[in-house]
Design a protein around this nucleic acid. Structure first.
Length: 644
DNA sequence: ATAGGGTTAG
């Protein structure tokens, strides 16, 4: 029998250093389970104690407690929250050796532990050995699968319990399955469960209704969401939040904001879920004013201290082009975690601040926050966006060597972009050829971008073929290839590509630019005259372009797809949506203010040059977010260094 | 103060 005394001889020093230590009582377990599960588990698996527990000679009991089951159960929940498979295994064998059974709730907990860790097979083996499986056992198994998003395994277990074992499911079972369906976009499976819920009559359960709202909202079935809400006998704050989020995610973010106003009128107090849904709506509407409003709401509701909310807010500001606001929010986060650090790093990456991103990386490491694969994706992207080739290569190496993170597709596409940018096309191609994963369109796209910039037609053609076979219906690939040919003066090849596009019925996605003014987003397309201020905008644009021409600048008409007269080309290119938005911005904003524009596609090369010159001549900062990154134009220079 | 469930940031 292990007693407190015998254990303490080996462990006492470390245990006593912990606050709240009371080895004899369950307080010890409880305290550590909730305060520091990691530490708690480490103590338990420390070799000597562990061996003692597992030693066959000592008929092991958990330390002087009348009910070892309780202690063990605490321990397993701690293991669960540590997501460590070795702890899970250690406790499992400990259970077998000490108690010689894994049935009942201990078995349930272990099953749930294994499934949450993604060890479906281990869970299944253990589960199959359990002689007395009840509803809760099955629910534990299903909820574990659900957390990992294993829809098929959830359904399989569902059928087995229901039809083979004859155990009746309850609302908990259905909630687990629907939430898995929602996370994987498995609408049909979700609908099936919905039908089941109707038959079972469990739609009184608000959590089930909410998981269904989430399922339909995430899958774009807004009608189904509304029908569900109309017939719903119950509803709570989560239902409202999901309504807002459903609209924010499906292109009707303004309606989402409308639901927020309704919710307030219904007397509901917003919580973290509400403001997170609103932040999503802001991102889709692209309205600075609204974001500031949500910021105010966050402060008013005391949600600023919530790390998830603060991180969402700083991320939003970065996406709206206000990196200085992001930085301010970040500065106010207490002990930022790895997600907050990474969000700040990512913001700098997309704005082309490579050095700042590197400093953030070093900063987080210094304070002991462990970077993960997402951190490295953004760090590498920062290096590539800022032309930090040497640094990027180094980070790519230490990622696996020091941090044990195996590179994923995102990391490879960043590296290909990084190498390609510095003209190392062969190195980039070699990397693609020898990478252990199957390159996706992001990887090939990065290589193609390098071919385009460096005019490597031969390789470009080859890469384009790969892109066509990966995404035959993606019109962007055809346009990129056609542009590459046009830029090289290979008009016939360019028109062949366009003909091919036409043959396949692919339509070019029209470019448009957006700018916020007076609580509204103003949208411009090429040659657009629909804006009420159109006359003034064109006059302003002519005036500015006149100044630029006067300074000797010639249009980069190679960015025009069509083989037409130079004068026509110049006319077309001078009415690009980016330029119209800039002219509008110059008209409506004060002299000292930056002009912030969003473009749905990548920025056109001529517009890029023009924006640089306008920033110089008009002494204005122009910030353009295109589909890939932010361009900061100031004093005639762009933050992207003319590679994008 | 032992087991299962809805929304959540990079």
């Amino acid at each position: 029998m292990i007693t407190a005394a015998s254990c303490s001889s080996s462990l006492l020093p470390s245990l006593q250093s912990l606050p709240g230590f009371l080895f004899k009582s369950r307080t010890f377990f409880y305290f550590h389970q909730i305060q520091n599960p990691q530490r708690f588990c480490k103590l338990f698996t420390q070799k000597r104690f562990h061996n003692a527990l597992l030693s066959p000679q000592s008929s092991v009991q958990f330390p002087s407690h009348p009910n070892p089951d309780i202690l063990l159960s605490y321990l397993i929940s701690a293991v669960s929250s540590c997501s460590s498979i070795s702890y899970c295994r250690a406790i499992h064998s400990c259970v077998i050796k000490s108690f010689n059974y894994t049935d009942g709730f201990i078995g349930d907990q272990l099953v749930s532990c294994y499934t949450r860790l993604g060890r479906a097979d281990d869970a299944r083996n253990l589960f199959d050995e359990m002689p007395n499986k009840d509803l809760i056992s099955w629910n534990s198994l299903i909820s574990g699968f659900s957390r990992r998003g294993y829809v098929d395994k959830c359904l399989d277990a569902f059928f087995r319990m229901k039809f083979e074992m004859g155990i009746e499911t309850n609302e908990v079972t259905l909630i687990s399955i629907t939430s898995a369906c929602a996370s994987r976009g498995a609408v049909d499976e979700g609908k099936y469960i919905h039908g089941f819920a109707l038959k079972l009559g469990v739609l009184w359960e608000v959590k089930l209704v909410n998981s269904l709202i989430n399922l339909y909202g995430k899958s774009g079935y807004l009608d189904a969401v509304c029908r569900l809400v109309e017939t719903m006998p119950v509803g709570n704050i989560v239902s409202w939040n999901l309504m807002i989020a459903s609209h924010a995610q499906n292109g009707t973010a303004a309606d989402g904001v409308g639901y927020f106003n309704l919710m307030r009128r219904a007397g509901m107090n917003p919580d973290d879920g509400t403001v997170l849904s609103l932040l999503e709506a802001c991102e889709n509407l692209g309205l600075q004013k609204l974001a500031e409003g949500v910021h105010g709401l966050i402060t008013k509701c005391g949600l600023y201290a919530n790390a998830t909310v603060a991180t969402g807010l700083l991320d939003l500001y970065a996406k709206l082009g206000r990196l200085n606001y992001s930085l301010k929010v970040f500065g106010e986060v207490n002990n930022p975690d790895k997600v907050a650090w990474t969000a700040m790093l990512a913001g700098n990456a997309v704005h082309g601040n490579g050095r700042e991103a590197m400093e953030l990386f070093e900063g987080m490491v210094k304070v002991g926050v462990e970077p993960d694969h997402v951190t490295f994706t953004h760090l590498l992207s920062a290096c590539s966006h800022s032309g930090l080739v040497k640094e990027g290569k180094n980070y790519f190496d230490i990622m696996s060597q020091v941090y044990g993170i195996e590179p994923r597709l995102d990391h490879y596409s960043c590296m290909v972009d990084l190498l390609g940018r510095s003209g190392l096309l062969n190195d980039a191609y070699e990397l693609v050829k020898r990478m252990p994963l199957k390159p996706n369109s992001a990887v090939w796209g990065a290589l193609f971008g390098a071919c385009r910039v460096y005019g490597n037609i031969e390789l470009g053609k080859e890469v384009a073929e790969r892109l066509f076979s990966l995404d035959p219906s993606d019109s962007r690939n055809y346009i990129m290839l056609s542009n590459m040919y046009s830029a090289a003066g290979l008009w016939r090849d360019a028109s062949k590509v366009r003909a091919l596009m036409k043959e396949k019925g692919l339509i070019r996605n029209p470019g448009c630019s957006f700018i916020e003014h007076g609580n509204k987003i103003h949208r411009f397309a090429v040659g657009d005259r629909s804006h009420p201020e159109s006359e003034k905008i064109y006059t302003k644009l002519e005036e500015v372009i006149g100044k630029i021409r006067g300074a000797g600048f010639v249009s980069k008409t190679e960015f025009i797809l069509h083989d037409v007269e130079q004068a026509v080309k110049e006319d077309m290119i001078s009415k690009h949506s980016e330029k119209l938005a800039i002219a509008f911005g110059l008209l409506v904003t004060n002299a000292g203010m930056p002009i912030i524009i969003t473009k749905n596609l990548r920025i056109c090369g001529d517009c890029h040059s023009t924006a640089k010159l306008i920033s110089f001549i008009e002494k204005r900062t122009i910030i353009i977010r295109d589909s890939k990154r932010f361009h900061h134009f100031a004093a005639g220079i762009c933050s992207c260094g003319d590679y994008w």
